[in-house]
Every structure is written in C-alpha cells, then in structure tokens.
Computed example of a mutant assay.
Amino acid sequence: MLAAALSGTTPARAAEEVDLLLALAADVSRSVDGQKFQLQRDGYAAALTDPKVVAAITGGTLGRIAVAYIEWSGAGNQKVVIDWTVIRDADSAGKFATQLLESPRAFADRTSISGGIDFSVAQLERAPFQARRRTIDVSGDGTNNSGRDVTAARDEAVAKGIQINGLVILTEQPLSWNAEHTNPAGGLDAYFRNNVIGGPGAFVMTAQNFDSFGQALIGKLIAEIAGTAPPSRAARVAPSGMDTLLR
C-alpha cells in the first residue's frame, strides 16, 4: 500500500466473488418465430424472478451469482444482450428481468450452437467477477447447422473447467422445410446429450414446447445454482411435461 501511494498508483481491487458465473445462451435462429421468441424471453424473465430461484441464489455460500444473457444464431451472430450482472435478491433479479423484456431481439439466422458456446466461453473469461463454478446454459430448438463442429466447441469449453447444460425445446409439428433440424433421428434431447452438454454433472432438460419453457427453466436454474442435477423422477412427472436426461 505504501509503495503504491508513493508511486501514485492505485492498488488493483480483487474481483468480487460470486457462487456461480452463469451465461444464459438463448437460441434466436430462424426456427424461433416471433411468438416463440416472446415466450422464451418471458420464460427467462419469469424464471429468474421465481421465488424458488431467488431462494436458491440467496441460499448459496455467498448468496449471489453473476449472470449474462446472450443471444445466438448463425456463425458470427452472437450478442451480449445483458452484460454480467450480480443477482443477490428479488430486487436485483427483477431489474435484470425488466431489462431483458425491454431489449430488442438480436438475430434471426441459422443455428450455430458451436458459435454460441465459443462466444459464451469468451464472455466467461472476461467476466469482472470470480467464481469456482462457471456454467453455460444453452437453450435451443434445433441441431447445429452453421459454424464449426459443436463437439469441438463443447470439448474445448469443458477442458477449461466450464460446465455446459442444455434446455431443449421440442417442436410439436416438425417444420416441413427443416424437419431433420428440429427433429433429428433419435430426438433432439439425445442430440444435445451426445453433442452439446459436457462437464461433471452436466444435464439436459426438455420443454415439450415453448409454452412450457419457463417452467422447465425454473428447475434447470435451481439445479445449476445449487450445483446439483435435478431429480429425474420428479422432473419426469412434472405437469409441464419437463423431462430430465443425465449425461
């Protein structure tokens, strides 16, 4: 301190520590039409302010997490909609949700899950906060069809100690022009399990449609904040049709 005072410099402040750095990476590709987009945005806003999610946040070791909201579409189309923000109570969660609902849509292009992961990794590495756990929460309604191989992006993120979880949004009626994209062989949930998620305890949760997205997200956020896998039996019988698949 004395040396810093004599030299006229200010000592660097240690970054604030939080329980979790959480990058919410939302799919806004062309298959997500205007109505689905709004349901997704509303779902994120409602889930972040849900009393059970807020209780999970405040019940952590430090009682706070840092969240960034990212939208991604085709290769090269990724944007930070809301930069790193500390959520520590209902008030800060409400402010984040309000900002999210008021922000315009970023893109409507192809689906580069790999680009979304790579971009999210970069945001985690530049975050002005520190945390022992770093997680990317990828939501999507289709397979990777743009950019580099998604498994390569996943493996590089996992090698850096980052966990990737998935929230799959099923398409009830396959798009006639792109059926294999939203309904691949074996199911989109299996595709995410085999190609997208990674890291110890990584999991996939499934919303049967965009209407049930918010309910599925609540369980997912609670599991991520607590650092545990969601209870599979309870998830499978949830009224929303929420399903859980563990990697």
Rank of each mutant, 00 (worst) to 15 (best):
L6I: 15
S7V: 09
G8Y: 10
A14H: 15
E17A: 15
L24W: 03
A25T: 11
D27K: 08
V28D: 08
F37R: 10
G43H: 05
Y44A: 02
Y44E: 07
T49V: 11
P51A: 12
P51C: 11
V53L: 10
V53G: 07
R64Y: 04
A66W: 02
A66F: 00
Y69D: 00
E71I: 09
W72N: 06
G76A: 13
N77M: 10
N77H: 14
Q78D: 08
V80A: 04
V81Y: 04
T85P: 02
T85C: 03
V86E: 02
I87V: 15
D89I: 02
D91E: 15
D91F: 03
K95C: 02
F107H: 14
D109L: 12
F119R: 00
V121A: 02
V121Q: 00
A127P: 12
A131Y: 04
D141M: 03
T143Y: 04
G147L: 07
D149I: 13
V150F: 03
A157C: 05
I162V: 14
N165S: 03
L167P: 00
V168T: 10
V168E: 02
E172T: 14
E172N: 13
P174L: 08
P174K: 08
L175N: 11
H181Q: 12
T182M: 11
T182P: 05
A190G: 09
A190S: 14
N195K: 15
I197A: 06
G199E: 06
G201I: 12
F203D: 01
F210H: 04
D211T: 13
S212P: 01
F213C: 01
G219S: 08
G219K: 03
L221Q: 09
I222N: 03
I225A: 01
G227N: 05
A229I: 13
S232H: 06
R233Y: 13
A235N: 12
A238R: 07
T244Y: 15
L246M: 15
